[in-house]
């Protein structure tokens, strides 16, 4: 302030000019970035459209043909709906089970991996990069890759899907877990080691109580994602409701009431677990009623 009044108008002008120049430069950068982005979006979409079987504008009017067909057919056979829902309920349970087990297994593996790869907590500090890379690779594997390979070896069914999702979950949760563990207070750990606790005791009693709410919250979120993943994997042959959906789709017109029942089940399940997990996550993060 004193500087400006001392140098008078000149200082204000130069400050303003510098500011305006900076603003112009930033605007120019922003405009270039925006233009590049729009160019990428437009040409990208044209490329994708050219490499597809149908055009965008040709397909758009037909967008609601299939849902409308399914709805009318399901409505015409609405009396069969309860029976159909019941028929696919076991498959739905299988899909949920795949998601639940893979979340459990994946979270456990992720927990171990995260503690092994967090500075200050690791059992073997020199191996931290190894465990980190392991998690990166596990995370990078799309579930479908592992699932398809395992289906070839183990045959169809829930186990390949379960392993595939668990591997990815371990990598994904491991990364999130280790970010939380990095912020954990090390004093309880020091206290425990001063009374002679070994590594697993230090982790279980010193670190785990601090990070448990966050870990549980991440795990619940992952469970939500895994239900969707397990439905998709079913579609490529790994059992559960996705597999039934593919079969129902191949039956084609006349059997769309079956597909409709599966859509309803899938939708309700996803919404239900979505609400459930967000409710408990809110409770965990806000800490009320623990």
């Amino acid at each position: 302030m004193a500087d400006i009044s001392a140098t008078g108008n000149l200082g204000v002008h130069s400050t303003r000019d510098a500011y305006m120049a900076m603003t112009r430069r930033r605007r120019a950068y922003g405009a270039v970035l925006l233009a590049a982005f729009i160019f990428l979006m437009v040409t990208g979409f044209q490329t994708v459209e050219a490499r597809s079987a149908g055009g965008f504008w040709d397909g758009l009017p037909q967008l609601f043909d299939f849902p409308a067909g399914v709805v009318t057919e399901a409505w015409a056979k609405i009396d069969r709906m309860p029976a159909n829902l019941l028929r696919y309920f076991p498959a739905l349970i299988e899909t949920i089970n795949i998601a639940a087990v893979s979340t459990l297994v994946g979270a456990f593996l992720g927990l171990v991996l995260s503690l092994l790869s967090t500075r200050g907590l690791a059992r073997w500090p020199r191996l931290i990069p190894v465990f980190r890379r392991t998690m990166d690779i596990m995370r990078a594997f799309p579930e479908i890759v592992i699932a398809l390979v395992l289906i070839f070896i183990l045959g169809g069914g829930p186990i390949p899907a379960m392993i595939a999702i668990a591997v990815h979950t371990a990598g994904a949760l491991g990364k999130l877990f280790s970010e939380v563990a990095e912020n954990a207070d090390l004093k309880p750990v020091e206290g425990l080691s001063s009374v002679g606790a070994n590594w697993s005791q230090r982790m279980l009693l010193g670190v785990f109580p601090q990070v448990a709410p966050n870990y549980l919250s991440y795990t619940l979120m992952r469970f939500e994602i895994n239900i969707r993943a397990s439905a998709i994997l079913g579609f490529v042959g790994a059992g559960g409701i996705g597999y039934e959906l593919r079969n129902a789709m191949t039956f084609g017109t006349g059997k769309f009431d079956l597909a409709a029942a599966i859509f309803v089940l899938l939708f309700l399940t996803i919404v239900f677990f979505d609400q459930l997990s967000s409710h408990y996550r809110n409770r965990l993060v806000k800490g009320s009623g623990a």
Partner: peptide, 13 residues
């Protein structure tokens, strides 16, 4: 599934 019925197979779907 819904979109592939309308737009056919391909990356656009």
């Amino acid at each position: 599934i819904v979109l592939s019925r309308a737009f056919g197979p391909g990356p656009m779907t």
